[in-house]
Design a protein around this nucleic acid. Structure first.
Lengths: 204, 204
DNA sequence: AGCTGTGAACATATTCACAGCC
DNA sequence: GGCTGTGAATATGTTCACAGCT
C-alpha cells in the first residue's frame, strides 16, 4: 500500500466515525468532501482495501470502518507505554481516544524518583527499571516518548534494547535509531514554522 | 517553493541548531545524514533559498540558519494564542521552544469561567471575550487549538471571524474552514494508527 | 441515474550522475 | 579531492475521464 494512502486511512476512519449512525452508506464524494480530498483519490485509496463499494450506491459505512481498522492492523488493541510524565505525558495519559483508536496504555514511566508512585489517570507512575520489564513481559512494541529533549536519545536506546519497534516521539530531538525501528516525529516548532512559511508568503 | 521542501526546512534548521557551535561549515552529506534525507535532496532544497554553498567546502552553518529562518518567515516573532488550557494546552504553554523557534505566546484562553485568572507559566488564563479583543489588538494571525473535540469547530469559527489565518489544531476534530485559512492537524490517534499499519505489516 | 473501479494523463518529488568550481 | 548545483531519469502521487455495474 502506498505511503500516502496509509497516511490517509486514519483520516477516513475518523470521518466515518464522526458521521455517527445517521448514514448507513457513504459515497466517495461525500467522504472526499469531509476529508478534504479528491473523490477519485478516495476511491483509489479504498480500492487497496479490497473494498467493495456498490456502484450507484457507495460504501457501507460500518463495513468500511471494519475494513479500515483491519488494514491498519487495529483488530486487537496494541499495548503502549508512555515515557516521560511531564505536562505533555500527562496530557496524553488523560487522552480518552486511545481505547477507541485501538490502543491500550499499559504504563507511565519517568526517570524522576520523586514522581514514582504518583497517580495519573488511573495509573501510578513507574520507574525506568519497571519499564524495561513491562515491555518484555507484555511484549510491547509501541512507545510514546514525551521526555525532555536531552533525555530522548538515551531513553530511545533503552526502548530499542528492550524490544520496542515503533516510537511516536514528541520530544524535540531527532533520534538516531536502527532502521528496524519505525519512528514518527511530532514537533510543535516544526508545525508552527511550516505555518509561518505560508503565512509569510501570503503577504509577500 | 515545493510543499515537500517547505516541510523539510524546519528539520534542517533543527539539525543545524542541534549541532552547536563546533562546526562552522556543513556539507550536504553531513546534514543529510543527521536529517535522514538524501544529500541531493538537501542540496536541491537549499538551492531554493538562493543559498550559496561553497564547492569543495559546504555551507556556512550560521549563514544557512539565517537563510532558513528568513525563508520560513521567522525574522520577526509571530504572536500566537493558545485556546483551551487543559493538560495539553498547559503542556504547550510551558514549552520552552517557542521563543527560539520564532514565536511568542501572547495569551492563554479558556471557556471555563472557573479557570479564568489561573496562572500558567507566567500567564493568567483569560476569557474568550478577551481572546477576540487580543487577536484584533495585537494583529495575531496564528492560533493553537487545544480545546476538546466538541468545542473545536465553534472556537475555530470565532478565530476565523477575529482574523486568524493559520491554525495549528491539536483537537481530534476536522475543522471546516474557509480556504483562506491554513490549518495543520496534529492528531495522536492518527499517528499511532499509521505506526500500527507498519507494525502489523511487519509480521504479515 | 448514480456510483464505483481503474487505465491513462498529468503533476510532484526523489535520486542519480556529473560538470563546474574551490 | 571534495564539494555544490542541476539537468535528466526515475519513482511516487494525484486527477481525469469513462467503462461497467446496480
Amino acid at each position: 500500500m502506498p505511503k500516502a494512502t496509509v497516511e490517509r486511512l486514519p483520516l477516513y476512519l475518523q470521518c466515518l466515525q464522526a458521521m455517527g449512525d445517521s448514514e448507513t452508506t457513504v459515497s466517495s464524494d461525500v467522504l472526499a468532501n469531509i476529508a478534504g480530498v479528491n473523490s477519485a483519490n478516495v476511491r483509489k485509496d479504498l480500492s487497496y482495501l479490497g473494498s467493495h463499494g456498490v456502484r450507484g450506491v457507495g460504501y457501507d459505512r460500518l463495513e468500511l470502518c471494519v475494513q479500515l481498522r483491519r488494514a491498519l492492523g487495529l483488530t486487537d488493541k496494541w499495548p503502549v507505554v508512555i515515557i516521560g510524565v511531564g505536562n505533555l505525558g500527562s496530557a496524553l495519559a488523560n487522552y480518552q481516544g486511545f481505547d477507541p483508536s485501538g490502543f491500550n496504555v499499559i504504563g507511565l514511566y519517568d526517570a524522576d524518583p520523586s514522581k514514582i508512585g504518583d497517580p495519573v489517570d488511573g495509573h501510578r507512575i513507574k520507574s525506568m527499571e519497571e519499564l524495561e520489564l513491562d515491555i518484555k513481559e507484555h511484549d510491547v512494541q509501541m512507545a510514546i516518548l514525551t521526555t525532555p529533549a536531552g533525555a530522548a536519545q538515551e531513553v530511545a536506546d533503552m526502548l530499542v534494547g528492550a524490544g520496542i519497534l515503533s516510537i511516536l516521539n514528541f520530544a524535540p530531538a531527532l533520534l538516531k535509531l536502527p532502521d528496524t525501528v519505525k519512528c514518527r516525529q511530532v514537533d510543535l516548532a516544526t508545525e508552527l514554522q511550516i505555518l509561518s512559511y505560508y503565512q509569510a508568503t501570503r503577504t509577500a
